[in-house]
Simulated assay, not measured.
Amino acid sequence: MNGTQLCTLNRQVAQDVCDFVYKAQPNEESVTDYLLYRLQEANKTFRYINTQQYTRRQEATTGADYELELWLVGKLVLFHY
């Protein structure tokens, strides 16, 4: 896995979600649906993430909309700005 490509892809997912929120002004559930959809699409390339969207009943108990498990395995790279 190329770390630069992974960072670029995740920045694009974040930008797409922000654009969606700004342009469509959706409700919270739609934002969660779109975020998880974009992450699952990105995951087809890198296979680094597991997501599970919670039901309304689970959310009422946990307070969470979804569970996200992220695996980044490789050489440690420190970025200095």
Rank of each mutant, 00 (worst) to 15 (best):
D65I: 03
Q25Y: 14
N50Y: 08
L6D: 00
R38I: 00
Y22L: 12
N27S: 02
E67G: 05
T51R: 03
C7D: 06
A60V: 09
T62K: 00
G63A: 02
K75S: 09
A60Y: 15
C18F: 15
Q58L: 07
E59K: 13
H80F: 15
Q58A: 09
R38K: 13
Q40G: 05
E41P: 02
E59S: 15
T62E: 01
T45L: 15
N2V: 06
Q5M: 12
V73E: 12
H80R: 11
C7H: 13
V21T: 04
N50P: 02
E69P: 01
Q15S: 12
R38F: 00
Y66R: 04
V73F: 13
Y48W: 13
T8D: 13
E67C: 05
E29D: 14
L35V: 09
L36F: 05
T55H: 04
C7G: 07
L39T: 00
E29R: 14
Q5P: 02
A64Y: 08
G3R: 10
F79G: 11
R11Q: 08
E59W: 14
L76V: 11
K44I: 03
A60N: 14
Q53W: 03
V13G: 09
I49V: 03
A24N: 11
L6R: 08
D19K: 14
Y81L: 11
T51V: 13
Q52H: 01
Y37C: 01
Q40H: 04
E69A: 06
E67T: 01
E67Y: 07
Y48P: 10
Q52S: 04
N10T: 08
E28W: 10
E41I: 14
L36W: 08
L72R: 06
A42H: 01
Q25D: 12
E29L: 08
N2M: 06
T8V: 09
K75D: 08
R56N: 12
L36R: 03
L72V: 08
N10P: 01
R38E: 05
A60K: 12
V13H: 06
K44S: 09
L39Q: 06
T32Q: 06
D19W: 09
K23W: 15
K44Y: 04
E69Y: 07
V77H: 11
R47W: 06
L70I: 10
L9P: 01
D19A: 13
Q5I: 10
V21M: 11
T55C: 13
G3D: 10
L35D: 01
R57K: 14
Y37M: 04
P26F: 04
Y37G: 00
Q58E: 07
D19T: 14
L68C: 00
V21G: 02
I49Q: 00
W71I: 14
T32L: 04
V13I: 15
D33F: 02
L78E: 08
M1W: 11
D19Y: 07
F46P: 04
N2F: 09
Q58H: 01
L68K: 00
T45I: 15
V73W: 12
A60P: 06
N43W: 06
Y66F: 15
G74M: 11
V13R: 07
C7T: 09
Q40F: 02
R56G: 15
L72P: 03
L39W: 09
N27H: 07
V31A: 05
L36N: 05
A14I: 09
A14F: 07
R56D: 10
N2H: 06
T8F: 14
E41L: 13
W71E: 11
Q53N: 05
A24S: 14
